[in-house]
Structures are given as C-alpha cells and as structure tokens.
Computed example of a mutant assay.
Amino acid sequence: MPKLFFLLSGENLTLPAAEVKAILEAEGYVYSNVCEFDQVLSLDSDLDSVRLVQIRSAYTRVCAQELLVANANYTDIADAVSKTDFSDVLKGGESFVVRINRIKNYADAEINTMTLEIKLGGQILRQNPGTSVNLKNPDKTFIGIITNNKLVLGLKLTDITSKTFSERRPRKKPFFHPSAMPSKMARCMVNLSRAKAESVLLDPFCGTGTSLIEATFIGCRAVGVDAQKRMVLGTRRNLKHFGIEAEGLIWGDSRKIPLFKVDAVVTDPPYGRSSSTLKSTTIQLVRDVLAASYALLGVGQRICIAAPKTLNISQLGAELGFKHVESHFAYVHATLTREIAVFEKVQKS
C-alpha cells in the first residue's frame, strides 16, 4: 500500500487525526504504520481512500502521497531527496512546483521556507531530466510540511476546502438556537460514529438538525427526535433550506424512541436546560439516552455522544455495557469543555 499523509486542521489536538482513521474504518479501508505529527497524520492505505476523506472530512486540509520524511535541516533534506525516486510520480515533459508549509514555529531558526522551495525545486529538476518548474500552473505539486522538526514531503493529491462548512454555520441557518453545535464538529462526530452511506443514523436530540444535515450530506439516512415541537419544526426548516430531507423527524421523548434498529447514533444532549432535558438531570438524561441507544444498535455499531467533561461519560457508557472506544475534548467557553466520546456495542458475555 502507498504511504499517505494528511495535513490536518489545528482546531483541535486529537479530533482531526481520529476523524481520518474513523472514515477509513467506516468505509472498510485497511491502514497501517500510523505516525502522528503536529497537524499531520501519516499512514499506509489505498489511494482510493483519499477520495472518501475528501468528501467526508471536516478537519482535513490536504491529502498527499508521502515520498519522504527527513530531519528539518538543509543537509538531511537534500540527502533524503537524493535517495528518493520521483519517476513514479513525475514523468518526462511534466511540470511541477514545490510548496512548503510550516506548522507553528517548528525549525524556524534552521529553515527558511522560500529558500527550501528553491533548493528542492532545483534538486528535483536535476534528478528528473525532461521535467520543468512551473510556478503558476504546474502538472504536479510537491507539498512539504515542517512539523515536529521534521519535513514531510509528498505529491499533493487534493485540497479540501472548509468553505461549505462556513456556509452552514449555526447563524447562517434559517432556524437558529444558541446551543447549536458547529457544522464541522457535527460532521466529525458523524464520522467518528463510523456511519457510512445508506446507513440509518439517529440523533435523539436533533435540536436545529445540524448532525442530520451533515449525515445526509455524506449519504446517510438520518432520523431525528426532539422533545420540543419547535425544534422538530426548526430542523425541518433547516433541512429544506439546504435542499435535503431526513429519513424521519419525530416529536417525542428521546428515551422512548419508536424505532427497532439503527446503524449509528450521534447526539449532543441538552445541558441543564429544564425545558429541553425532560425534567431530568443532565447526567440522568445522558444515562437514559445511552441505554436507549444500546437497545437500538447492533453488536459492533457505535454511538458518538457529546457531554460536559465533568460528567465523565466514558464511565457511564461502560456501566451500561458499552465498550469505550475513544474520547476527545473540545473547549467551548470558560464553563464548558465538551467530551466527545465514542462507544461500541459489544456482545455481552
């Protein structure tokens, strides 16, 4: 399998890399030899997997075929390039350009990015007769990322824009609520649930419909439940705004969902708002929705749930028979840090 690397968003320390791996797992792509740098994930996997990451990921910026990793100094980089065969990715008659990005201030004293671009361009040109440099419209772009005092260099396969997520920000939707989760976070949670196209995904606290919208955009059949009628109507309005439909919208109690089976659950329960917590404490509400989700999921299927870090939901899920797969933490404001937890239903012994 070829080696790939993904330039990740710096919006969260752990979610971006976890999201890429979850996408590959959801779609059945095997990966190995994982190496994580600051905002870069390197692994071996099928080249076809890049297309799925491009379609699904919220926190990936660039996908590339990795060619080399070297210590971030001119001598070691030149040595690594001299030992790299570019003939499989750069043919005679093709033009190329080298672009270097630096994460934070890594190797700031050792490497000037513009100087490195010129040096690498010249060296690749000498090693590959018949090719040419084209700064404006190249056939191939070699992208290098300086991170953790290493240079990761590869052939760029695709850019991923975050513009569409900006267009779906909570305040840009016709129905707004201040507790609405950002679209990127919702998409990431859908991916962490390992939902795939055509699978049935449930959000038992659908709110303004953010998770349903993001799930539908990657081909899921989304079902939403909310205890407040105005939220259900607002979700329908937001879905219509984006020209999509849910598999179903239910005004009802999230603890008594009139369904027999779903393939994945993604949800962000309300925190301490009596009008929307069904007159339960937040911890009891989370416990109840975990129990209801356990009954709906099959063995091996997953729920991704957000809750205040103080609730320690990883322990709650384990008490109900789930296997805790992973947790990530997202700072919201001074009094709220979300824990994004993923649980898998396992066969009870």
Rank of each mutant, 00 (worst) to 15 (best):
K240D: 15
V34C: 02
S32M: 12
L155Y: 02
R99N: 12
R194Q: 12
Y29F: 15
A109K: 14
G122S: 04
H333K: 12
A264S: 13
R221M: 10
N33G: 12
P178A: 02
P2H: 04
F6V: 03
L290S: 07
T147A: 12
I111A: 00
V152S: 02
K91A: 06
S276E: 04
A227I: 15
I218E: 01
F329I: 01
G92T: 15
V97I: 10
E247C: 01
D226V: 05
G144S: 12
A291C: 05
N134D: 15
I283W: 09
S95V: 09
C206A: 10
N105Q: 10
N191C: 01
F6C: 02
I250S: 12
T141M: 12
K91V: 09
K309G: 06
P2D: 04
A180T: 13
S166T: 03
A306D: 06
L320E: 05
G130I: 10
D159W: 05
V20W: 13
F343D: 05
N238G: 10
N148S: 10
Y106I: 09
R187N: 02
T84Q: 08
D268F: 03
R230Q: 15
G272K: 01
A307L: 02
D263H: 14
V89L: 09
N191K: 09
S280Y: 13
P270K: 04
N148Q: 14
T337K: 05
L239E: 03
I340C: 00
P170A: 11
G248Q: 06
L157E: 07
L68E: 00
E110W: 05
M114K: 15
A78F: 12
I244L: 01
P204D: 11
S293V: 04
Y29I: 09
L155K: 12
I55H: 15
A215F: 03
G209N: 07
L41D: 00
R237Q: 13
N137Y: 14
V265P: 01
V223Q: 06
K156N: 02
N312T: 13
V89M: 00
G93V: 02
A291T: 13
E11W: 00
A318Y: 09
S314K: 15
V62A: 13
G219W: 01
R169L: 08
V50D: 01
A197V: 10
I103S: 03
S45T: 14
L43D: 05
V325C: 10
Q228A: 15
T141H: 00
L67C: 06
V89N: 07
E19W: 02
A222R: 02
D88K: 13
S183F: 01
V325D: 11
F322E: 03
T235P: 06
P129V: 08
G130L: 07
W251F: 10
I303S: 06
S275E: 14
T113I: 11
K348R: 12
T60S: 07
V346K: 07
F142P: 05
F96H: 03
R169Q: 12
V223H: 06
H177F: 06
D159L: 03
R273M: 13
F242D: 05
S132T: 11
Y74R: 11
V342C: 08
A215L: 04
V69S: 08
K279M: 13
F205G: 07
G121I: 04
G154K: 07
D288C: 04
P270S: 10
R51E: 15
A80V: 05
R237H: 09
I250P: 10
